[in-house]
Design a protein around this nucleic acid. Structure first.
Length: 1042
RNA sequence: GGGCCAAUAGCUCAGUCAGGUUGAGCGCUCGGCUGAUAACCGGGAGGUCCGCGGUUCAAAUCCGCGUUGGCCCA
């Protein structure tokens, strides 16, 4: 890996470095180097093992990697165990698909154990692929030993935590109306429900009153919930009207909220109506009615309090103003039913099919019964109207089946009991960005309902709950405890905690037998204990005692509701505190239009493609150069290409001094700033380096990772490449050893070596490649320390002055361009006019450097440039009225005259006019041969007037340039010697070149320099004809044999 | 339907917390430099700072109402 390519080729750099890291055990050496440093407990948010790395996960892991590398370089022993989330419904669903299953019945037939083995195989295969993906972008984590949520130690961490929660009395069993996926046949968490637009039935139904004439009218989009109807809700404050409505010669009485009467009657196609009575909602309370499907059902909700009207705050003056309520199916209905002390009636089983209670509909999947129910309602005359309704409705995130609400037996962590504690614990954490905590997160936590943690599935951590017939339960916390308490023989070191092995175990205590609750944990429980699980607590305790809680975690903003929350909930419920101290939140990668990448839009860019096209370091730097705190990234190929170009500039800066140092036998690893003379540019660039190091340190401090990266990259392109390298080029070309050259070598070596370390966390391959070439005394650059500013090298005044010089230089280039004089040709003088003393002082202090850079014989600094000429500009608004028909001629005569000329009178057609002051305005302009350009602190004037001497030097420079070009074409070594002949077609110009023949010869390493006829082409290795300022110049070049 | 975030040059983004002449890179174009050379530098063109309203001497920035996109919730 020692040959330095002319071109920065990321692929070559990266594969060479990868091999080197493997051979040198660089990762291990890095950890070893920081083994005794203070701890930094990072916890990896475990990616789910059902997919592969995409740009979002690549960003996530790259950011983690950069921070870990930086923490190591600033002296920390970093916990870097990567993790994988390997349980859960998504994997079950994928395996079911592979095996062609349609329901839980297929799984039971296939065998639970075999199915779980398949899930495990699936998760592990994916995990291995993801291991490789993450390593392919240079992520240095402990890939030999990732934590897996399926390991016995990890599962035990969840059991242990859950036992703590139970001890605090925060575990509750109960019927709740939950989101239920009828295909997966399990409750799913609210955040596992996705919403989409669907079309549902929309029916208006008459519930006949028992003790009065007429019917209550309700509206619903779920006809299948009518068999479970338990009460009708009204708004106590609203006015309801009894309406006698007429259709087809028949009359009936309908009860509807007053604002809805007209709409309802129109829907029912009534021909006429009359309001016969009015009630407040309160007055309706207690009225009784019959379920209109009664004759079709074996059972209706007819227990104490059912079939009556109640108030509820979820009623609105929408549709009918009366709400059909079924606590067995609706969450609000459930909550209100509970308040009212009503039983929960559910004529639906776990497969989503009606039970025998539902009579005619028994055995039918609920939604499939909709049509029959509507038909039956219609037949009995209870259907007032029927149509369709488009609305957003939830479906299962994994299998897309529309969810139903079902009151089922579930287990909960009652986080609503510890709301205050949760909110207090949020205050203890620092978030980057802070608004994520104070707005998003706090809102979410405030609104969080009790956490349903039970799933009626297979591939997960089994609930460690054993329950007796009387409802009492025991929660087991560890494998050890399990072995001690269960009736069967269990080896705690051998047992696999997965189902079905734990299912048959029983506990007998105090004469009662407890059986295991067959559910598994919600998969969010798994990752919620990652801070314990990653250090194998409770089976190992040392690391936990030292490290816990986590110092820092980082994930994308979707995890506010996910991992950030689940960890806070579990940490607070189990041990009373948040398991992390600092949280960083990054964004998502969208496409270039800011749209989500998706298969259906066909706009997915894979990390592999990005690496193929640009490289790993460029991809990493590209991802890390954008805001890392809460904001999304619009991925764009051009941007990635730009980053590659930027790194290429770094590459060029890196390799630029190498040939010279090699010629001189200079070893950059031994660079010493005390050896050789430092010029003002050396001092300046070293000062800038310290400033950039301070900026980077500040940025890292606040996890402003992109600011740290961009500060260094800007320094490299703006200061080092654009300015410093240009400034020291001539010193590098000096053939003899010199103090000045050694100063430049030492400075550039220092800048490179420290910049490499500054960039190491971002572009680890490139940094390693450069470090190994320049120095290589350490096994790896990543084991070194991060550069810190040395205040003795910092000179803020010099930095300010140089900033002024650069402004002036830019303006001078502008003025030159206006004056048509290229930089290669010297100018007599450059005048800097400024009324700002600081600017003047800055320019004067750096006058020599400025003269060199703008190629001027002299630099003059003045307060005001007194050679300007004022040119007249006619004010036609005044001249027009004053001179009438002659105004046009006056204008032409005045235009561009000097003040003196105007004041001595303007002559038009032989007549002289005196003009008033207000007729003319003046603009100050430089005289001929001088062009000016403004900069922030004043104006720069460049005097481009030619003299023989300037012309002679200009042509000589042009000839030198051509000869150098030809040396390059001949691919000659930098130090090889040539013979040169130059034939200039114009005698005057030929003489100019001849004046500088010694300079030309020296600059081009020419031994024998001849002017005049070049002679036969055969005598030269290369003969070229050039046009220099319209003069033909023929040049012959031939290497001198050594 | 609700909460949060974003919208600035053709493109990607700074600037918004702390109100005071909108900036960079890329791209385009013209020019320059060059033994870093398939690199590099400068000039120019290019903006209703998403829209509307408000506060203020002054708004990209603060406030309100919308639009579009992203995340989350219902």
């Amino acid at each position: 890996m020692d040959e330095v390519d002319d071109q920065y080729t990321p692929g070559d750099v990266e594969s060479a470095v990868e091999t080197y890291w493997d051979d040198a055990d660089a990762y291990e050496a890095t950890k070893e180097a920081h083994a005794d440093d203070p701890a930094f407990f990072f916890v990896d948010g475990p990616p789910y093992t059902s997919g592969q790395m995409h740009l979002g996960t690549a960003w996530n892991k790259t950011l983690k990697d950069a921070v870990i590398r930086h923490k190591r370089m600033t002296g920390h022993r970093v916990t870097d165990r990567p993790g994988y989330d390997m349980h859960g419904l998504p994997i079950e669903v994928k395996v079911e698909e592979e095996l062609g299953f349609e329901s839980k019945r297929d799984i039971e037939e296939y065998g639970m154990e075999a199915f779980i083995d398949e899930c495990k195989r699936f998760a592990e295969e994916n995990r291995e692929a993801m291991d490789e993906d993450f390593q392919s972008i240079g992520v240095w984590m402990d890939w030999d030993d990732p934590y897996e949520t399926i390991s016995p130690e990890y599962m035990e961490a969840a059991w242990w935590a859950f036992q703590r929660v139970d001890e605090r009395g925060l575990v509750e069993q109960g019927k709740r109306s939950v989101n239920y996926c009828p295909r997966c046949q399990t409750a799913i968490a609210a955040n596992e429900v996705e919403y989409d637009e669907i079309t549902s039935p929309s029916i208006y139904v008459k519930f006949p009153l028992r003790e009065k004439e007429g019917s209550l009218v309700i509206w619903t989009t779920t006809p299948w919930t009518i068999p479970a109807n338990t009460f009708v809700a009204v708004d106590g404050e609203m006015t309801y009207q009894a309406v006698r409505a007429e259709k087809g010669g028949e009359e009936e009485v309908l009860y509807v909220a007053e604002p809805c009467v007209e709409d309802v009657l129109k829907k029912g196609r009534y021909e006429d109506y009359e309001v016969v009575d009015e009630f407040s909602g309160e007055e309706l309370v207690g009225w009784t009615y019959d379920n209109p499907l009664g004759p079709h059902l074996n059972e209706v909700a007819d227990f104490e309090g059912a079939g009556e009207v109640y108030t509820a705050d979820y009623v609105e003056a929408d549709r009918t103003g009366l709400v059909h309520s079924a606590p067995g199916h609706g969450q609000e209905d459930f909550a209100r039913g509970e308040e009212l002390g009503l039983d929960v009636y559910v004529p639906v089983d776990g497969r989503g099919e009606f039970t025998a209670d539902a009579g005619d509909y028994a055995g039918t999947f609920v939604r499939d019964a909709n049509d029959d129910i509507i038909a039956d309602l219609d037949e009995s005359g209870a259907l007032l109207a029927s149509g369709e309704h488009d609305h957003r409705y939830g479906h299962c995130w994994r299998c897309d089946t529309d969810i139903i609400f079902l009151a089922t037996d579930q287990w909960f962590i009652t986080v609503t009991d510890i709301k205050d504690e949760l909110l207090e614990n949020i205050e203890e954490t620092e978030w980057y960005p802070q608004w994520a905590r104070d707005n998003r997160f706090r809102d979410f936590v405030s609104d969080a309902p009790d956490w349903n943690i039970s799933r009626q599935r297979y591939w997960g951590i089994p609930l460690p709950i054993w329950q007796a017939d009387d409802g009492e339960w025991i929660v087991v916390g560890t494998r050890e405890e399990l072995a001690e308490r269960v009736d069967q023989d269990v080896d705690p070191d051998e047992i696999d905690l997965h189902r079905p092995s734990v299912d048959p175990l029983t506990i007998t205590e105090d004469g009662k037998t407890y059986e295991r609750v067959p559910d598994v944990f919600d998969v969010w429980i798994d990752s919620s204990v990652a801070t314990w699980g990653t250090i194998d607590y409770p089976s190992e305790t040392d690391a936990h005692d030292e490290l816990w809680p986590a110092d820092w975690i980082v994930e994308a903003h979707d995890q506010t509701r996910g991992w950030f929350w689940s960890q806070l909930g579990m940490g607070t419920a189990a041990v009373g505190q948040a398991p992390y101290e600092e949280v960083m939140m990054h964004g998502f990668v969208n496409d270039e239009d800011g749209r989500k990448m998706s298969k259906s839009l066909g706009n997915i860019v894979t990390p592999e493609e990005a690496i193929d096209r640009a490289g790993r370091d460029p991809l990493r730097a590209y991802l890390l150069s954008h805001d890392q705190q809460g904001v999304d990234l619009s991925f764009e190929w051009n941007g990635l290409g730009e980053m590659q170009s930027t790194l290429n500039i770094f590459w060029n800066v890196f390799r630029f001094p190498l040939p010279y140092m090699e010629l001189d036998g200079y070893d950059p690893a031994d660079a010493d700033l005390d050896d050789g003379d430092l010029t003002v540019v050396d001092e300046w660039v070293l000062s800038r380096l310290q400033t950039v190091e301070a900026e980077a340190a500040d940025a890292w401090e606040n996890y402003e990772v992109s600011d740290a990266l961009n500060a260094v990259l800007d320094f490299l392109t703006e200061d080092v490449s654009r300015f410093y390298v240009k400034a020291i080029r001539e010193r590098m070309w000096e053939e003899e050893d010199s103090a000045s050259k050694r100063g430049a070598y030492a400075t550039l070596s220092t800048v490179l070596e420290e910049t490499i370390r500054l960039l190491a966390p971002f572009t680890p391959y490139l940094a390693e490649r450069m470090y190994q070439h320049l120095d290589g005394s350490a096994t790896t650059v990543h084991a070194l320390s991060y550069p810190e500013p040395d205040e003795t090298l910092r000179n803020e005044e010099l930095e300010r002055n140089m900033a002024v010089l650069r402004d002036v230089e830019e303006a001078a280039a502008n003025a030159r361009q206006q004056g048509g004089r290229k930089l290669r040709w010297p100018v007599q003088r450059v005048v800097v006019a400024s009324d700002d003393d600081e600017v003047a002082d800055a320019v004067e202090s750096l006058a020599d450097l400025l003269a060199e850079r703008v190629n001027a014989r002299a630099i003059d600094v003045v307060g005001e440039f007194d050679e300007l000429l004022e040119r007249a500009n006619p004010e036609m608004g005044v001249i027009g009225p004053a001179f009438g028909a002659d105004a046009q001629k006056v204008m032409e005569a005045v235009q561009g005259k000097t003040r003196a000329e105007v004041e001595s009178g303007i002559e038009v057609d032989g007549e002289t006019y005196d003009l008033d002051d207000e007729m003319i305005s003046y603009e100050a302009e430089p005289p001929a041969h001088i062009s000016g350009a403004d900069f922030e602190g004043g104006t720069v004037y460049v005097d481009t007037e030619l003299t023989d001497e300037i012309e002679a030097e200009g042509y000589a420079r042009d000839v030198i340039r051509r000869i150098q070009e030809m040396r390059k074409q001949l691919d000659l070594d930098v130090d090889s010697v040539i013979d040169t002949a130059v034939d200039v077609a114009d005698d005057r110009i030929a003489e100019f070149v001849d004046r500088h023949r010694d300079v030309v010869a020296e600059e081009t390493r020419t031994r024998e320099f001849t002017t005049g006829d070049v002679g036969s082409e055969d005598e030269w290795a290369l003969v070229e004809e050039w046009e220099v300022e319209d003069v033909r110049v023929t040049i012959g070049v031939g290497p001198v044999d050594a």
